[in-house]
Amino acid sequence: MNSAAFVVIAILTLAAAFASATLQKLMHAALMFALTFVGIAAFFFLLGAEFVGLVQVFVYVGAVAVLIVFTILLTRRDVQDTGKPNWGGAIIAIAVFGGLLWAILKTPALFIAAPQIEALTVKRIGGVLMTDYVWPLQCVGLLLTAALIGALILVMEDRDEG
């Protein structure tokens, strides 16, 4: 694995994530959100899981980010986050970060380099998905259908109240 690529992607992803969490303009935050997910997909590529990276870009940049910008358009009154940030939340987040970092740095077993692996082909993923994971796959299909119908019902206008 290339360490230069790692550093570049890490800086890009974390900066984009931080921007998407803190920018005032919602639209910019949504675009930064898309960039964050491209960065995470790049991490997946670096880790040898190309398929997951591509799915990530496809789902998040192609679908979720577009949904978010559409929602911003439909709730146009609040394109700027005017509410005051909750500083207590920020302190909690920093505390959690400190705790996690302490735990990670204290664990010596994590100082391992990546072992050699055979490339994870799409064929293998498909095979596993259709054999060992066929029930979860069906459940996810059901869940997505339910989400689709639920979202439609939620946003449908109440005609009789008018």
Partner: peptide, 23 residues
């Protein structure tokens, strides 16, 4: 290996770009 998926993953980014142009 996942060339077709790559094509569509990249192609779906176009929507966001069009939206950026409009906004």
């Amino acid at each position: 290996d996942g060339g077709i998926l790559f094509f569509f993953a990249v192609g779906s980014t176009t929507e966001l770009a069009v939206f950026m142009a409009g906004w």
